[in-house]
Computed example of a mutant assay.
Amino acid sequence: MQGQAVPRVPTPRRYLMCPPRFFAVDYAINPWMDPSQPVSAKVALAQWTELRDTYRRLGHTVEEIEPQPGLPDMVFAANSGTVVDGRVLGARFRAPQRAAEAEHFRRWFTEHGYRDLTMPEKINEAEGDFAWTGRVLLAGTGFRTDPAAHAEAQEVLGVPVVSLRLVDPRYYHLDTALFVLTEATDAAPAQVAYYPEAFSPGSQQVLRRLFPDAVVATSADAECFGLNGVSDGRNVVLPLEARRTGLGETLSRCGYEPVYLDVSELRKAGGGPKCCTMEIRK
């Protein structure tokens, strides 16, 4: 069932991002990456800059971490930390090509005064597979994050965790198949958008039970990384193609304001708006 059009209220957010100055596709660790195809770090940086500036224009705070040579995927900051109520759970990557990113983000948090910080023992690709709904942490598994990391996240962050199994390798992280439109409050439940076919049958049932008012996306929405969106409760940043697929129109009918951006170069590495955006929740 699609959501009803109700007044939507944006809330200021704080994000951590990493400029893609060393962006490249030198290896393939997901189905979207093709090292034989040309990519442009200049174009990727321009698209990233527009994303960052859009957040600031919408009233959000954006902090930046310094990119490092030899880590072309460091731009995808969402994969390197999960922050809820000021508690930080770092990342541990499955792919060796990205492993060093976790330490750079750990240092950033330490240098910026975060004392309640834990580095995981289990493989955990952070907000790539963790989505905070305001009440529970949705946790993906199947391709990257270990199932055991879900229990670890619950212990470290002190919030209830709901496990969801991903079954389509194109949607290897939870944030490629689901995103939170509105977090739960005392007055209203959370609302999400998701692509059902990316999940196992049991996980689909869980999502229907938890979010009967969800925005249910199509295969076309998912294929353009439309589910890799970022919402502040009213404004929803989406890939430009989501206008064509109809996802943006659906969200408009639900009272949201779509904001379309070109992220086509970043998508060559399997990323979109959310992949580039770690949310810091104090």
Score class of each variant (00 low, 15 high):
Trp48Thr: 07
Arg144Ser: 08
Phe23Ser: 00
Thr245Val: 02
Gln2Met: 06
Ala198Gln: 11
Asp34Cys: 01
Pro10Val: 05
Leu157Ala: 09
Leu181Glu: 01
Ala28Phe: 01
Pro38Lys: 11
His112Thr: 13
Lys42Trp: 00
Phe22His: 15
Thr245Trp: 05
Pro189Lys: 10
Gly233Ile: 05
Gly271Leu: 02
Thr82Ile: 14
Glu265Pro: 06
Val136His: 11
Pro189Leu: 11
Asp73Arg: 01
Phe93Asn: 04
Leu261Gln: 00
Arg244Val: 01
His104Met: 01
Gly59Asn: 08
Arg21Asp: 14
Arg87Cys: 07
Arg13Trp: 03
Pro160Gln: 09
Ala151Leu: 14
Pro67Asp: 06
Gly229Gln: 06
Ala41Leu: 10
Ala193Cys: 13
Val6Tyr: 04
Cys254Lys: 05
Arg244Glu: 15
Thr277Ser: 15
Pro20Met: 09
Thr49Glu: 14
Arg52Ser: 13
Ala198Thr: 12
Ser264Ala: 15
Thr245Ile: 00
Gly140His: 08
Leu137Cys: 08
Pro239Ala: 08
Gly229Trp: 05
Phe143Met: 04
Met74Lys: 06
Glu279Arg: 13
Ala41Cys: 09
Ala242Lys: 00
Leu210Asp: 11
Arg8Phe: 09
Leu16Cys: 13
Val159Leu: 10
Gln47Pro: 10
Arg52Asn: 04
Gln68Asn: 00
Ala269Met: 02
Leu138Ala: 05
Arg144Ala: 12
Arg170Asn: 14
Phe93Ser: 12
Val215Asn: 02
Glu127Gln: 15
Ala190Thr: 10
Pro189Phe: 10
Phe23Val: 07
Gln204Tyr: 04
Arg8Asp: 10
Phe105Asn: 07
Pro67Ser: 07
Ala91Ile: 07
Gln4His: 13
Phe179Lys: 05
Gln205Asn: 13
Ala222Thr: 01
Pro72Tyr: 04
Glu241Ser: 12
Ala217Thr: 12
Gly248Trp: 10
His173Pro: 00
Glu63Val: 00
Ala131Val: 03
Val83Arg: 09
Arg13Lys: 15
Phe105Ser: 06
Ala217Asp: 01
Gly59Asp: 12
Val161Asp: 04
Pro120Ile: 04
Val216Ala: 02
Thr61Val: 12
Phe211Ile: 09
Gln204Ala: 06
Gly70His: 02
Ser200Glu: 14
Cys224Tyr: 01
Val156His: 00
Arg13Asp: 01
Arg21Tyr: 10
Val84Thr: 07
Asn124Leu: 14
Ala242Pro: 03
Val62Arg: 11
Pro196His: 07
